[in-house]
Design a protein around this nucleic acid. Structure first.
Lengths: 184, 184
DNA sequence: CACGAATCTGACCGTTCGGTCAGCACCTGA
DNA sequence: TCAGGTGCTGACCGAACGGTCAGATTCGTG
């Protein structure tokens, strides 16, 4: 296999190919060989540009994770439960819509992937998100609602690739407003 | 390893052990060796009682799948969209609560596991469920709501092992009633 | 042109997985 | 007593995986 790329944009090609494959077969279900095959290079070349498989996922998810972190800070800075709920709902829907392709890459592998170092703090962040969405209430029904909606949006927003951003955002926000119990 | 079980209830022990392990590390993340280790027998013994790994999952999920099928038939027999929506909501919540431990076994591996022969018809059934929950409407917001709620409940109901059945059922039904758009 | 760094390759490694197989111990019934 | 079925074992297999490595090729530059 003789393949002399004049320009070494291979790094980005690998990233794009990985995104495509992860979206179809998931992270675990995609081998380095698969990615290499899609790029048209050897598996060793993939591992030349990335330290390991996880590093690819890390770079792919970095922007989404950064945005989630900053949303978390904005929510924590909000003392009033009602406004925190509003900020959390609007912020989360915004993230879900903007990063829906990235989220789709995880294809329901949340539980396993959350264990990995890349997502080290996501667990705590999502707990604070649920807390805020539940209006900082301890009542079981409120917390159940918050978790169902959070998980449902995260799990499905990748499926609506054909829906315009604004339409999706409006639909999800309307759903949240209807579904979230007022903080009591 | 000398281990002469007087009574051969090993079949059921394997099933129980598999359920426990699947619930912790997921289907893919659990090896036959793990299950054998938990039972205290050899991997070959597991494969003596079950044709292959998938057969374990099949037997574990059989009751839940049967119940889902019968719910599907009840929904399809219902010509009126509004009543179909009510039947679907109540029936699905009932299933989610009753079989939440079984559902929890899938631990977010829905997309991959749905490909397997065991769940061959689940895809179509869930599409009909979404259709019914959306009030048989073609409007995007209605369908988005239905999918988010369906996925959210399926994904999370296993987390509420400490909530009594009735409380969980009430909370989920109240959420669905609040969140589902009326059929228009 | 020469040299070192960057890029990439094929071969290889250790591990884990699902699954197979020959055979051993035990129980049962003729 | 012994033939045969049941339950089970350890050893083994091929495939796939993530990752390593020495070396080849190419490129920028003094």
């Amino acid at each position: 296999m003789v393949m002399a790329r004049p320009t070494p944009q291979t790094h980005d090609e690998i990233l794009a190919a990985a995104a495509r494959r992860f979206g179809v077969t998931g992270y675990r279900g995609t081998s380095l060989q698969d990615i290499a095959g899609e790029v048209g290079c050897s598996k060793a070349a993939v591992l030349y540009h990335f330290a390991n498989k996880e590093a690819i996922l890390t770079e792919l998810m970095a922007p989404a994770i950064g945005a989630l972190r900053s949303l978390d800070e904005r929510i924590m800075a909000q003392p009033d439960p009602a406004t925190a709920q509003r900020v959390a709902a609007e912020g989360f829907v915004d993230l879900a819509v903007r990063f829906r392709t990235e989220i789709a890459l995880l294809r329901g592998e949340f539980p396993e992937l959350l264990q990995q170092p890349v997502f080290a703090h996501i667990q705590q962040i999502s707990e604070r998100l649920i807390d805020a969405l539940a209006g900082r209430s301890e009542r079981a029904p409120a917390r159940i609602c918050a978790l169902v909606l959070l998980a449902g949006i995260a799990e499905t927003c990748g499926e609506f690739a054909d829906v315009p951003d604004d339409d999706l955002r409006d639909a999800l926000l309307a759903l949240l407003r209807r579904a979230l119990e007022p903080a009591r």
